[in-house]
Design a protein around this nucleic acid. Structure first.
Lengths: 217, 217, 217, 217
DNA sequence: TATGAATGAGTCTTCATTCAT
DNA sequence: GATGAATGAAGACTCATTCAT
């Protein structure tokens, strides 16, 4: 029976308002790579040690830079995590444009799911932890950013002519995003990497949901 | 010549494994109420201040007891959160028996969803945070307990004669649990308390999922 | 390589002056046995858990009495340890009278050593820990009591007509006591229970010491 | 909407084994002096306040550094005490080499005793308390280190051609170490600083001991 | 008298962040 | 720009002791 000594979720709050905006735009090539290195170190630490080991000193150490340097580029720990989230979200958000051109809601939904799966599969641990971090509603802006944009993209899909008629497309879009994420996460947790079956399942759930909401016929 | 007070040599040893089991069973009525008060204070702190403000001193303060009292009944901060989770999960787990007697998979699924909704609606903030806490996989046993039991219950539903034929019922059960939770959480987040529509949506998603997995015709 | 997590020696001081005198003389038979039980529990805890686990709650638990009862008979933790030390020292001090009647310094020293060995052998762990406790100069009075009385007894031996002529008998007595204790403790530590060889060794050291100090020809 | 500062989810885990190894090697001159200052402060606190007042905050305060700095260089309170013990033991252990070259057991023993006396006399209070700390068998390795090395050194003396023939040289060496220490400590306790008489007494005891064990003639 | 619930001062330790070099 | 030493607020947890029942 595992009863090992994990402690607890604690949180530190420093100052009331503190921007997460990058402190300094790296101008030199060297600086740019420093930033990259730090963010990647953050990702690794998170993957390997979890939130447990995610502290700025550890990240700096892993990155091979001094703690001072870290703070030269990131205002705060929060800002660093924010940057990491942004970096991870980027490829996911790229489908926005792709989606914008699609005419078939079915194809678009599939495209959206596939993007989500690809995101998850790349670095499952990291994706899972970032998910949790987002939910703690820290980084609200950042995250709101990501999730909101995904929702908007999905909502646009639901507004395509061939989509089912829905009374509240905003709600539906939010639900589709949540539902997709949950099924993909669940697969990730059980290290299930059967891409196609996962796609089919998520599609099933989404269309089941949408049809139940549909006012057609 | 030094002749003053107690000067006892003691030594402290960190312990490797830390049980979450209750430290002391309250025997007197007074103690019993103290425990209740503390757990409820923990719930309140979590709801109001989030993980951010969830520290044992704050909980003790809110509960109106000394920090010592808190530790008399809870081995650690973790144990306290664990107890809170257990308390919250209890009503949810009560449906296990109810479910066991049902013959119709449709009705059983509905019953399951309704229990989940009731759980969520009671204290949405709290439910949401507990959800997150569970995912951090601290408290693994506790939580595994809850989620595993829910999964098992759902799996049993999927084994009813009238349920769709599924290749992997374990996976399906896990997915149904995840999916249900995500949609209910999403509703909670947007403070949507239209019980019935929520029920219908979740049902739609679940059956959509199950049918996509079904090997029937 | 043992690097295990033993913490540290800490000490708590409560009030400036606090007698160690028994708080209450047990009048009833029942009370008397309670005291005995508590002191023995203290001994056991010390033997088994070391100073590390020696806290009043643990002792009360081991004794099967409430913490309140413990404090009914012992003013403080210190008083309890004091009582334990006194109890352990008692048999050792009984030789005082025996020694008083002896005429031969050689025989008396041997008798003294044997008493020390007997004391050590009975409960070696306990003896070792009590030794340490005494040295921390907590319980100064108590201990001074024991050690002082032993020293006095030895000094009286050194004043016997057949003893070597010494310039400072007080110092010699103190040294004999210290030396005896150290050799016996060392034997205890290595779980050496060859009584007779130990006796011979201690005698050798003592007489070697005394002769080096002797002013006889 | 809450959008204020850092709110990072962290988790703490108690560790099973706690090394006493230095946490960070000071690289800058400044850091080096900090370490020195802290250890010396620890020594002072121990001398002045005893174990009673030996807490990390007090040490940091005395050292004039922040508590954080203390922990930057010492993993724990224990590690700090360990470092102090090591520092104190160092000069004592230096005689190892000196002893190794000696041919006369008598001279070597004398040399050993003198080193012990010098050690004691330098800072008697400190030496006494360190002695006690060692016996609590925390820091087992550290201490085992010191005592074991002393024992080995003495054993080598006892193996010199001119030494008495002993059945068990290991036991004898351990006893000689214990005995020496006890007599020197006793002298320290009574603030007796007559170096030469102390040396003579210890020699007397040691040779008395050794002769009693000798199998010669 | 006995009980055990309650207390809270006191300690250890971490980690985000600053700042002198 | 970079470094890493230093800071100290914050938080977990213990245990001797008191006191209402």
């Amino acid at each position: 029976m595992l009863t090992e000594g994990t402690r607890i979720v604690t949180v530190r709050k420093r100052v009331a308002t503190k921007s997460v905006a990058p402190r300094k735009v790296p101008r030199q090539r060297r600086a740019e790579s420093t930033v990259t290195v730090i963010v990647e170190a953050a990702a690794r630490i998170l993957e390997i040690n979890g939130f447990e080991g995610f502290n700025t000193n550890a990240v700096a150490g892993k990155a091979g830079v001094s703690i001072g340097s870290l703070y030269q580029y990131f205002r705060s720990k929060e800002a660093l995590l924010s940057a990491l989230i942004a970096r991870e979200a980027a490829p996911l958000l790229k489908i926005e444009t792709e989606l914008a051109d699609m005419k078939s809601s079915r194809a678009a939904i599939r495209c959206y799911i596939e993007a989500g799966i690809a995101y998850q599969m790349r670095r499952p641990q990291l994706a899972r932890l970032i998910d949790i971090a987002e939910k703690t509603d820290m980084f609200s802006d950042q995250v709101m950013g990501t999730v909101t944009r995904l929702r908007t993209a999905v909502q646009r899909i639901l507004e395509l002519p061939d989509a089912p008629t829905l009374s509240d497309k905003t709600v539906a879009a939010a639900d589709v995003v949540a539902l997709t994420r949950s099924l993909i996460d669940a697969a990730g947790e059980r290290r299930d990497d059967d891409h196609n079956r996962l796609l089919r399942r998520v599609e099933g759930a989404i269309w089941g949901y949408l049809e139940s909401e549909s006012m057609d016929v």
